[in-house]
Computed example of a mutant assay.
Amino acid sequence: MILNNASMAAVVLHWPPSLHIADEQFFDLCQANKELRIERTALGDCEIMAPKGGGTGWRNLNLAVQLYNWAEQDGSGVAFNSATGFTLPNGAIRSPDVSWVKRTRLAVLTPEQKQRFLPLCPDFVIELRSPSDSIKTLQDKMQEYIENGASLAWLIDPESQRVFIQQANKAISILDKPKFLLANYLGFRLELQKIWEVGF
Rank of each mutant, 00 (worst) to 15 (best):
S130F: 03
S95L: 00
P96Q: 03
T41V: 02
A92Y: 06
P122E: 05
C30F: 07
T84N: 13
P16A: 06
D140I: 03
P111V: 07
C30E: 15
P96N: 04
A32T: 14
R59M: 12
I48R: 05
W58E: 13
D28Y: 00
V12W: 02
D123Y: 03
R116H: 12
H20Y: 02
C30R: 11
T137P: 00
I126H: 07
I21Q: 09
A107H: 12
G75C: 10
P122T: 10
I38A: 03
P96F: 03
E39D: 11
A42I: 05
L120N: 01
N69S: 13
L128P: 04
A9E: 10
V125I: 14
E24F: 00
K114H: 05
L63W: 00
R59H: 08
K114T: 08
P131Y: 03
L63M: 07
P119Q: 10
A50P: 07
Q113R: 00
G149L: 10
R105Q: 15
T56F: 03
P89Q: 05
E24Q: 12
M142Q: 05
D28P: 00
R40S: 08
K102E: 15
D45V: 11
A79C: 15
E72D: 05
D28V: 07
M142A: 12
I48D: 11
M49G: 02
E35Y: 01
N60L: 14
W15G: 04
V65E: 06
F80S: 09
P96W: 03
N90E: 13
E144I: 01
Q115K: 12
S134F: 08
I146T: 06
R94S: 05
F117L: 01
R94M: 07
L61E: 13
T41E: 13
E35G: 08
R116F: 08
R59A: 15
F124V: 15
L88M: 14
V98C: 08
F27C: 02
A10V: 09
V11L: 13
F27A: 08
C30D: 11
L67Q: 08
L128W: 02
D97S: 01
S95H: 04
N60F: 01
P119E: 10
A50G: 13
I21K: 07
F26I: 03
D123H: 06
V65N: 05
E39K: 02
T110Y: 01
I93H: 06
S18H: 09
Q113V: 01
S7I: 07
S134L: 02
A50I: 14
H14G: 02
A22Y: 00
G44H: 12
P16V: 09
V108C: 12
R103N: 15
K114Q: 12
L29E: 12
T41C: 05
Q25N: 07
I48E: 13
T87S: 13
N33E: 14
I135Y: 01
I38M: 07
F124M: 13
V108F: 11
M142K: 01
L118A: 05
L63G: 06
E112I: 04
P119D: 09
A9F: 08
L106G: 13
T87G: 03
N90Q: 12
P51C: 09
N69K: 11
I93P: 01
W58D: 13
R37T: 12
T56L: 09
G77E: 03
C46Q: 14
K136A: 10
N4Q: 08
S76E: 14
